[in-house]
């Protein structure tokens, strides 16, 4: 540092302090980006490795020391093998049918139940409230044996998609989430509608539902993803290969291609892409739904 600049600094201490401050900021920002990127690598790597494995050519060894990341002669042969062996498009259509139906009907059932719990006083309200809470606690796996018997002997929907939809139509969790949203609607609004002669059903549909639309979307999207990824119960119910959903079909893939990891990797990649695209499109609702869950 020369004498002139030093005297300048003495005369005006601010700019230098600011410059140092800015330097520290740049350093800390870079550091934080390094942390964020490192975490992103840890999160995404298993998927990336799947994708890279799936397109490796016959001359690329799957196992090498050190690991070989990029394929030298990429090929889509593994995808052709998987698509030839398993009806992936049927799995996809089945998953869409189950998840869309489940999430839409869930919103309907939950919002109907949530309205009186949020805005009406009636005998038995507390009992119903606690009964609903109790069902939150019980693990679904506890009910699978009787539900299996019901599916086979009573409802006769074993090995159909209805077996996945009906038991999943109601979720106490969704009821609580929407009850919380309904409670935020001002009572004055409801009273005004009642004075105008609107019935309760009309109030629910024309006033309550439009106001809580973001919460409805959050419930629908969460239910959709849960249903999309559900495995244990669907694996018990679905037997015919063409009737399987994606997770059940994917598990079958593991048995089908036991040693052929290129094909398994291709299958996983095919099935992960649609739900990731859905997630990117609906991302902000995930945050809203999760943030709202704690208050509910």
């Amino acid at each position: 540092m020369s004498a002139t600049s030093e005297s300048q600094v003495l005369a005006q201490p601010r700019p230098r302090a600011q410059r140092r401050f800015r330097w520290r900021r740049v350093a800390s920002t870079t550091g934080w980006y390094a942390v964020l990127v490192a975490l992103a690598v840890v999160t995404v790597f298993p998927f990336a490795w799947m994708l890279l494995t799936s397109i490796k050519g016959p001359n690329d060894p799957l196992m090498s020391v050190p690991p070989q990341f990029l394929p030298t002669d990429p090929t889509l042969a593994a995808y052709q093998r998987v698509l030839a062996a398993l009806p992936i498009s049927a799995f996809f259509v089945n998953s869409v049918i189950v998840s869309v139906t489940t999430s839409l009907l869930n919103v309907l059932v939950a919002s109907l139940a949530a309205y009186p719990l949020a805005k009406m006083r009636f005998p038995g309200r507390t009992v119903i409230f606690w009964a609903l809470l109790a069902t939150l606690i019980v693990p679904a796996q506890l009910t699978f044996i009787p539900s299996f018997v019901l599916a086979v002997n009573v409802f006769h929907y074993y090995d159909t998609l209805r077996a996945l939809i009906f038991p999943a139509l109601v979720s106490a969790f969704n009821i609580f989430l929407l009850r919380q949203a309904f409670r935020g609607v001002p009572n004055d609004l409801l009273d005004a509608a009642r004075v105008d002669g609107a019935g309760e059903f009309r109030i629910w549909w024309r006033i309550m539902m439009p106001i809580v639309r973001p919460s409805l979307a959050a419930v629908a999207i969460f239910t959709f993803v849960t249903s999309w990824n559900d495995f244990l119960w669907p694996s018990l119910m679905l037997h015919t290969r063409e009737g399987m959903t994606l997770p059940v079909g994917l598990a079958a893939l593991q048995g089908f291609f036991s040693a052929d990891f290129r094909s398994i990797a291709a299958g996983v990649t095919i099935t992960v892409v649609p739900i990731l695209m859905f997630f990117i499109a609906a991302q902000r609702y995930f945050v809203r739904g999760l943030a709202g869950a704690v208050k509910g």
């Binding site: 298993p46 998927f47 799957l62 990824n229 495995f231 593991q254 992960v272 991302q283 995930f286």
Partner: peptide, 28 residues
């Protein structure tokens, strides 16, 4: 970044389980 960190939560347990099976395979 926030969206990236959420990816495993939406990908489905079977898919990520298979991805991990491959990572931890003898030839993984």
């Amino acid at each position: 970044f926030r969206a990236l960190y959420f990816v495993p939560a939406v990908s489905g347990s079977i898919a990520i389980g298979l991805a991990w099976t491959w990572l931890f395979d003898r030839n993984g």
